[in-house]
Design a protein around this nucleic acid. Structure first.
Length: 548
DNA sequence: ACCGTCGGCGCC
DNA sequence: AAAGGGCGCCGACGGT
């Protein structure tokens, strides 16, 4: 049932099997070097592995060829339970913070001061597991919190598997893309096309020394040349008629590519035909993933042509269409919005329902509702969205008001927003301070408004991944087949509402079906029979660039 | 030399 | 056209 793993001393692993009631069935200690081999045999019994940190244990198991079906990541679960409003009346709320509340300690590799200290044995994972189970059972929403802890834990498994597999990356194609867009690499200087643009910028500004990478000096130079701008940002420059604008915007575009995903990035992050970024599951307050190195979640369109499947394999790229509006429709129980979502393109569905005239109005209107936009097109659409989808709007408005009042809000499964700052606004004295306090309050309201939708969308994505991961394993032969994870169809990329599976060409169609089936399953897991659909755009391609 | 912050921009 | 949510990363820059 449960199989807890910890390290009571360096090089030693303690394995504790629990039965369904949480009673200890067996306990033994083995050398850590033997764990990968033992794990393969233990996994045959389909235990739920229990460990402090998935990143501490799972990489070595995967490297040895053992894929794990399920786990509890105790530290992730402690964090979300500690913050959860639904667990406010449990023992956890009264318990002082302890080491389970601390972020995972990273190895202090070269720090001799710490090496002199006696190594600290792991805290007992069995006690913490039983504690967390009791907290969930005593909470206001045990079913939802149990689901959320399971979802976060499966996300932790997927993140390690993504890093293990890596995203197939063709360094030669990447180099070709860079050379075509940026020009030849120049030792000690910018690439050729960028250098040429710098020349044009300097000529247009009549300023032979200006460095377009330095915003302050560039701004002064622009103003000296007569441009009425208050920043050097793209959207402000776009509205100005001056010969410097075109080369400067072109330069900015190339400079971004050069510094963020240029040759230096390629050399640092792509090895052996794979891009291996570092994912941080639930690294964002809303429960979204973050990344820590490699910039996996900001991979620009320009370089996606370098993502290429292996010979005989395909990339199956799936994108959830208008995920956040659909999640909002489901959470708020807005039947009219759910009906608009019957269309594969929900925004077109809103046009067809007569809520707005154009697709673009629908899109900006919905984004405004979810983000709290008040100006521009999204602000203008607000009354019409409100009339067409009153329950959805009331739902996000309530979240915004809660934030403004200093209350916390929670996602569908119960992830809870951080507390707002003390709302001692009335005691502030000057008009300026009161105005700033009001503005801060509204900003926090926009945050809580978005939190409930973005966070629930992240939960949907976790359920999608979890269900898909199981289906992919079965497609690859299931437990009966001893072949490792990366010899089967397997996940290679995750981007909030988008997944990429690397699959043998002959299984690509089946993978596409699995992606759709798992999306439907995610909807059922979260929202039961609510009439909200989660359609995908799926493409079977050789290169990521061909997916859209 | 190092560190934190900021402007700017990539992604959703 | 717009400017409202969440991030990470880069170079520049101002502080120590």
């Amino acid at each position: 049932m449960y199989l807890a793993v910890s390290s009571p001393a360096p090089g030693v692993v303690e394995l504790t099997a629990l039965d369904a009631d949480g009673a200890v069935a067996t306990r033994e200690r083995i050398p850590e070097a033997e764990l990968p081999v033992r794990a393969a045999a233990l996994e045959a019994g389909h235990p739920r592995w229990v460990w402090a940190d998935t990143t501490r244990w799972y990489p070595a198991l995967l490297a040895a060829g053992t894929r794990v079906e399920r786990c509890v990541d105790l530290r992730m679960c402690r964090l979300l339970l500690r913050n959860a409003a639904a667990a406010r009346d449990t023992e956890l709320a009264r318990a002082p913070r302890d080491r389970w509340d601390e972020p995972r300690a990273v190895a202090a590799a070269s720090d001799t001061l710490f090496e002199l200290d006696a190594p600290v044995p792991d805290d007992d994972p069995v006690a913490e597991l039983l504690f967390q189970r009791a907290v969930i059972a005593a909470s206001a929403t045990p079913g939802r919190l149990a689901l959320l802890t399971a979802a976060d834990s499966v996300g932790a498994l997927v993140a390690v598997e993504l890093e293990h597999a890596g995203l197939p990356w063709d360094a030669v194609r990447h180099d070709r893309i860079l050379t075509e867009l940026l020009g030849e690499r120049m030792p000690g200087a910018r690439p050729a096309h960028m250098e040429r643009l710098v020349g044009e910028i300097r000529a247009a500004l009549d300023d032979p020394d200006v460095n377009p990478d330095s915003a302050p000096t560039l701004l002064k130079s622009l103003q000296r040349a007569g441009l009425r701008v208050s920043s050097t940002s793209r959207w402000e420059l776009k509205g100005v008629d001056h010969p410097v604008v075109a080369p400067l915007l072109a330069y900015k575009k190339l400079a971004r590519l050069y510094t963020a995903n240029g040759w230096a990035w390629l050399g640092e992050w792509v090895h052996g035909g794979r891009f291996r970024p570092v994912y941080v599951p639930a690294g964002v307050v809303t429960g979204r993933w973050a990344s820590d190195g490699g910039g996996a979640l900001q991979l620009p369109q320009q370089v996606r042509g370098a993502v290429v499947s292996d010979p005989g394999w395909k990339l199956v790229v799936a994108d959830a269409a208008q995920l956040e509006p659909r999640v909002l429709a489901a959470m708020s129980g807005d039947a009219a919005m759910a009906r608009a979502g019957r269309a594969h393109d929900m925004y077109q569905g809103m046009v067809d329902a007569g809520a707005v005239e154009t697709r673009s109005q629908a899109k900006y209107g919905m984004l405004g509702a979810i983000y709290g936009g008040t100006t521009g097109e999204s602000g203008r659409m607000r009354p019409r969205i409100e009339r067409a989808f009153p329950r959805a709007m009331a739902f996000v408005e309530a979240a915004a008001r809660a934030g403004e009042a200093g209350d916390v809000v929670s996602t569908w499964l119960g992830r809870t927003s951080p507390p707002g700052r003390d709302a001692a606004y009335d005691e502030t004295r000057s008009d300026d301070e009161r105005a700033r306090a009001r503005s801060d309050g509204r900003a926090w309201g926009r945050f809580t408004r978005n939190f409930v939708v973005q966070g629930t969308a992240a939960e949907w994505a976790l359920c999608w991944m979890g269900a898909l991961r199981r289906m992919l394993w079965e497609l690859g032969g299931g437990d009966a087949d001893p072949c490792p994870l990366t010899a089967r169809p397997h996940l290679v990329f995750f981007l909030h509402d988008e997944l990429i599976v690397h699959a043998p060409a002959g299984l690509a169609d089946a993978v596409a079906d699995a992606l759709r089936a798992s999306a439907a399953e995610a909807g059922r897991i979260l929202f039961g029979d609510a009439p909200v659909e989660f359609p995908l755009t799926v493409a079977i391609v050789d290169s990521y660039a061909d997916a859209k």
